[in-house]
């Protein structure tokens, strides 16, 4: 690509650019289908069978089944599309966002009420903020999963 991608050095952040959009095309189109009540019902009745109707990679299907949004994003998912999965599960944006940080819903909510995540240390990869790779996972939920 001829244009610079200056956004790759922002920690814990994936910019939904052409490459991601290509990678995640079918994953995101699957998400989009969940805007219809009928499709949500079919997905819930048999997730695997519904996923198999889409030209997604096996890994993308696994990431959806695991409801691992960070994994979905690595595979080209975009948060606005992925939100339809959360909606199908009856989850709010806040619950979804919490799940990506390894925090419980309560921990995440408290962080937000306290003014949100600070930008200090979280601007550029290699600083020492709480979104940096070496500080993951951040919360109790993540630690539980880590074991």
């Amino acid at each position: 690509m001829a244009l610079d991608k200056p956004y790759q050095d922002v920690p814990g952040t994936t910019i939904f650019d052409a490459e991601q959009s290509r990678l995640g095309y079918h994953l995101n189109q699957f998400c989009m289908s969940l805007m219809k009540a009928e499709n949500r019902a079919r997905f819930k009745a048999n997730e695997r069978a519904y996923l198999d109707e889409w030209l997604m990679t096996e890994e993308q299907k696994q990431a959806v089944l695991a409801r691992d949004l960070n994994w979905c994003i690595r595979l080209g998912g975009n948060i606005y599309f992925l939100a339809k999965i959360g909606a199908t599960d009856g989850k709010s944006f806040q619950q979804m966002a919490g799940s990506m940080t390894g925090m419980t819903e309560e921990e995440y909510r408290d962080m937000m009420i306290a003014g949100g995540r600070s930008v200090e240390g979280n601007r550029v990869v290699g600083e020492d903020g709480n979104a940096q790779a070496h500080r993951q996972p951040q919360g109790k939920a993540g630690r539980k999963e880590a074991h």
């Binding site: 952040t13 994936t14 966002a97 990506m100 937000m112 003014g115 979280n122 979104a131 790779a133």
Partner: peptide, 10 residues
């Protein structure tokens, strides 16, 4: 920011 480990940035 809604996504990734930096979600919640303000």
């Amino acid at each position: 920011q809604l996504q990734g480990p930096r979600a919640g940035l303000i």
